[in-house]
Design a protein around this nucleic acid. Structure first.
Lengths: 152, 152
DNA sequence: CTTGACTCGGACAACACTTGTCGGAGTAAA
DNA sequence: TTTACTCCGACAAGTGTTGTCCGAGTCAAG
């Protein structure tokens, strides 16, 4: 089990965007966090495709959050970058091999798939309980805003 | 986020082993589930390394559960096959780039890492609440035992 | 209106991991 | 002693992620 590294970058970027006044370009977000600009751009595109951020092209362009920071959950960002599909996919091997069960017994999902689904549900539920606004509240936003102004 | 496909195979194998009388070799486990024997062997080795199953070599050898089915949780199997490390690894990018925070502010984990850890904790908690015995109880064990006898 | 520079967007390699396979060392029974 | 069967490690192929680049479009300035 592994989560794409771009998730961390994207979450930090969303926190920055929640405190910014206007659009913030990819290059500045990369400099602020000390990461590769080219690679960060890919993840921001994922956020744009998911409708979490809105791009503005041309001079003085950049990205802006489409919703209020309190209306964007951590789960939204994770699913946008890492994909929304389930981590565990049941291949129905109970219907294969020597001890294949008859299809009429397989109307309900097998116990293994059920436990995995429950676990992922608990995982998503925790992530959906925290918003970008909550994350921003845990750190000193004054220094963040000051750095944003100075680098602009 | 993705979970290794071998997890499903390993869980099904553990359920079979919980109902078997003596050692079950890799070849029979593969035939019972209709999967590749060579590849299944690799995952069973992971289970052996984790101490969940015990191998017996030579003729009439195979794998046996080391503990009672009620003492082996789904989490044990998942961690044995897929690895026990956390899915999310914080790279401390808050200490890098233009808005790097001073180290004295970074004694506590950042909010992002905290949420991710909480979510994974909830995930593991769900998986550790179900045992191999629970999984075996959800299906008809009589047909399983009959197939085991017939193929032995 | 022209110019210019800056923005995002998708197409293009390199790397790592997972998946899949094989033959060899060792062991227990016959 | 022989034999056949078992597990175990090392060896390729495929797939997804990581990382990078240059071009099309756009807005502001002159």
């Amino acid at each position: 089990m592994k989560i794409s590294g771009g998730v961390e970058w994207s979450l930090h970027c969303c926190v920055v965007l929640s405190q910014a006044e206007g659009p913030v370009p990819t290059a500045r977000l990369a400099d602020l966090h000390g990461v590769s600009k080219s690679y960060l751009a890919k993840h921001l595109q994922s956020l744009a495709r998911a409708g979490l951020v809105h791009p503005t092209e041309g001079r003085d362009g950049g990205y802006v959050l489409t919703r209020a920071p309190g209306d964007i959950t951590v789960l939204d960002v994770v699913q946008a970058v890492d994909g929304a599909g389930p981590a565990f996919r049941c291949t129905e091997i109970r219907q294969q091999g020597l001890l294949a069960a008859p299809p009429e017994q397989c109307t309900a999902p097998c116990g293994i798939a059920k436990v995995m689904a429950d676990a992922e549900r608990a995982w998503r539920n925790t992530l959906s309980g925290v918003t970008i606004a909550d994350l921003a509240a845990t750190l000193d936003v004054s220094v963040l805003k000051a750095t944003l102004e100075a680098s602009g």
